[in-house]
């Protein structure tokens, strides 16, 4: 009887999860095994042919590589920045509320708005960056039009956008740490850095894990800015996996190949979160 009630209590959540998560995942995997169909030639089962096609697709490998660089560029930087900002505005500071709000503002803006703002930062000649560079006599640069700088430019913008959001979590975590710890550490003669490294940072680890998972997910999920800034160009230099999936599905109408790419995205995310939970969880102290 208790089993029945337990399952009944689970049902609402389970229905939602199955309908909107597991069923679509299953359907995606199934779709990836079929050929692209049209009214003249209906879709048929082709096994792993789409995956073989993908392995031969240079754009796929490029977007995967770009995405790895994008993740490496955004995750550590935005987390470090978030932590620094949180420590800064956690102290007694004149105009503290203002500083907190200023740090948080980028988070409030929709990504599309952010991209439009930054488009006018990066635009050659008339953009903010080039105008400031011009004032101090530096030559302008076509940030988004140069394959060597475009990904970096997008990473900087994403860090700017993300750090404020992560700061909020750190700030909340910092508020729960009792001040006695710092007082005790001081009595023992610990320097600020030692206190941070030995006490504060380990205590913040649960927050860091949470933030890290979010940052990793975002580095694969966040592509809104590409629609405005580069459309993945020039020559795929800033193309990311999810944007390529979108292009494949809605610009090329190739839903089955898009499903194949989606399976890869799901696998990447699943493996990454598994690693985090298994490996990092052991090193985290929950209170």
């Amino acid at each position: 009887m208790r089993h029945v009630i337990g399952w009944l209590l689970l049902t609402p959540a389970a229905i939602l999860l199955i309908a909107f998560t597991y069923w679509p995942i299953g359907a995606t995997v199934a779709d990836s095994l079929f050929s692209r169909g049209n009214p003249i030639r209906p879709s048929r089962f082709i096994g792993l042919e789409n995956y073989a096609l993908m392995a031969d697709d240079p754009i796929f490998w490029q977007v995967l590589w770009n995405n790895a660089l994008f993740a490496l560029g955004t995750i550590p930087a935005s987390i470090a920045l978030a932590l620094m900002m949180a420590l800064m505005v956690n102290r007694a500071l004149p105009g503290r509320a203002l500083a907190r709000m200023a740090f948080f503002t980028p988070t409030i803006l929709p990504m599309i708005a952010v991209a439009n703002i930054w488009l006018f930062f990066y635009t050659p000649d008339i953009g903010l960056i080039d105008q400031i560079a011009g004032l101090i006599g530096l030559p302008g640069h076509n940030w988004l039009g140069d394959p060597d700088t475009v990904l970096g430019a997008i990473i900087v913008m994403t860090v700017w956008k993300e750090a404020g959001f992560f700061m909020i979590f750190y700030l909340a975590a910092l508020q729960t740490i009792p001040p006695e710890l710092w007082e005790a550490a001081r009595l023992e003669g610990a320097a600020r850095w030692t206190y941070f490294r030995r006490i504060l940072f380990p205590l913040l680890m649960p927050t860091t894990l949470f933030v890290l998972i979010n940052a990793i997910l975002n580095s694969f999920k966040l592509v809104d800015h590409l629609f405005i800034l580069t459309k993945g160009g020039p020559d795929n230099a800033s193309n990311l996996l999810l944007y390529y999936i979108f292009e494949t599905a809605f610009s090329f109408f190739d839903t089955t190949y898009a499903a194949t790419l989606t399976v890869v995205l799901l696998l990447v995310l699943a493996v990454l979160s598994l690693v985090q939970y298994v490996v990092l969880d052991k090193r985290i102290h929950y209170r």
Partner: peptide, 19 residues
Amino acid sequence: MPEGTIEWGTLRQNFLEGK
């Protein structure tokens, strides 16, 4: 012409500002 790619969306602004 500048090297690299030139943005479609901001080009009109470039022209209007005399760049």
